[in-house]
Design a protein around this nucleic acid. Structure first.
Length: 410
DNA sequence: ATGTCC
């Protein structure tokens, strides 16, 4: 573990960075970590090895505070990862055939929403048309195969079969979380809220609903995708990496904010790479460490939530477009296939835009925070499918005058 | 990240 340099200002929370010297971390992200740690009421802050800059606050970090900071959780409240084991044998899977069967996941679900919501115990919201949709950015649904089993005992304990395909879903609360954040920010700005105050209570109630919505959303995404492929599956895990929750610490209640940080106290988690690299199924090693205290657990019971972005959104296309065409990006180095009809998104989420997940996981293992159970190989990554007529064209019709002149074909 | 943006 390396420690950020001392900075001036009021002595505040302890700040830790869990990363080896070989792991690239942007200076701006470390500055955001230190600045956030100086907010009122902060007790401890940790940057995980996937730390990278966010808008105002870093991503890949956890914060322990006396106050509740909605802005720190961000807009995608409840975002996380769900993992399913399917009944589909890897050897019999035809990924091109499967890709043809996947479409329409962007539109509203045509099932019995009321019945399903009741089954999930999920209160209705104005955003329920979006239930079962993946969204944009780094969200995805991915069919994976087991690449290597490194801990056979833990693997078997999860009832995992190395021959069967898995489904990993990464999504969150979409527009609902955005509306919850906007409502509290409009009233109170970015300030920390006293947990007992009405503002915090109202926020936390809406936050908890968004967290529930996000999990239900991942479940419905999985259901839709599995139905389309004619597969059955069992959920192995579901964890949130964007949320705030109360945590008991030496008799007092503090608030643990995870901003792109996976929990180390909810069983195994998947640390996804990019669509072109392996993902890691890991077993956290902190579950028996009680009582909870930052002094004995500087990781704040958290793990990296992925590889971490290396390039900001929008930066990848100009860097890569001369080297790789969109059709090149729809096949990956590990033989996987990518469904993504949005060019900007295709470039933004290219493997090159991410740090090396192997390095990130190695840092966690070296810090004694987790053990690798297995590595998972991407087979078919679903990002965004546009209606057939609109694929690889301009998103919307523009007036003729606004159209660029046709360029010569190379 | 965002029923994304005019």
């Amino acid at each position: 573990m390396r420690e950020p340099s001392e900075t001036s200002g009021p002595a505040a929370a302890s700040v830790h960075l869990i990363a080896s010297k070989d792991t690239w971390i942007e200076g701006g992200a470390v500055r955001q970590l230190e600045q956030t740690a100086r907010l009122p009421g902060m007790r401890a802050a940790v940057g995980l090895p996937d730390l990278h800059p966010g808008t105002g606050y870093p991503i890949g970090a956890a914060f322990l505070s006396e106050l509740v900071y909605p802005a720190l959780v961000g807009n995608d409240i409840g975002c996380g990862m769900g993992l399913w084991q399917t009944d589909q044998a890897m050897r019999k899977f035809k990924s091109e055939r499967a890709a043809e069967r996947l479409s329409g996941l962007e539109g509203p679900w045509d099932g019995d929403l009321d019945g399903w919501r009741a089954e999930q115990g999920l209160a209705p919201s104005a955003f329920d048309q979006a239930l079962g949709t993946i969204g944009g950015g780094n969200h995805f649904a991915e069919i994976q195969a087991v690449a290597e089993v490194l801990d056979a005992t833990a693997f078997a304990a999860l009832n995992l079969d190395p021959e069967r395909l898995l489904l990993l879903v990464h999504s969150g609360s979409r527009g609902l979380g955005e509306s919850v954040l906007r409502a509290v920010i409009d009233q109170h700005g970015h300030q920390g809220l006293a947990p007992a105050a009405t503002a915090a209570r109202d926020y936390l109630q809406a936050h908890d609903h968004a967290v529930h919505w996000a999990e239900a959303n991942r479940r419905l995404i999985a259901t839709r995708l599995l139905n389309a492929l004619g597969m059955d599956a069992e959920r192995l895990l579901d964890v949130w990496h964007n949320l705030v929750q109360p945590i008991d610490w030496a008799g007092e209640t503090l608030w643990l904010h995870r901003k792109g940080a996976a929990p180390a106290d909810r069983g195994p988690v998947v640390i996804p790479g990019s669509r072109g690299t392996l993902s890691y199924l890991v077993e956290p090693l902190l579950q028996s460490r009680l009582p909870f205290a930052p002094a004995t657990d500087p990781s704040l019971r958290s793990l990296a939530h992925g590889a971490g972005r290396k390039w900001k959104r929008g930066e990848a296309r100009p860097r890569l477009s001369t080297l790789q065409r969109p059709e090149d990006l729809r096949k990956t180095a590990l033989g996987g296939q990518v469904i993504c009809d949005d060019k900007e998104l295709l470039y933004d989420e290219a493997p090159e835009a991410y740090k090396a997940v192997d390095r990130v996981v190695a840092d966690l293992v070296d810090a004694g925070l987790c053990r690798v159970i297995a590595t998972l190989r991407p087979v078919l990554t679903y990002k965004l499918r546009r209606a057939a007529g609109l694929r690889d064209r301009q998103r919307a019709h523009k007036p003729h005058g606004a159209r660029k002149p046709k360029r010569d074909r190379r």
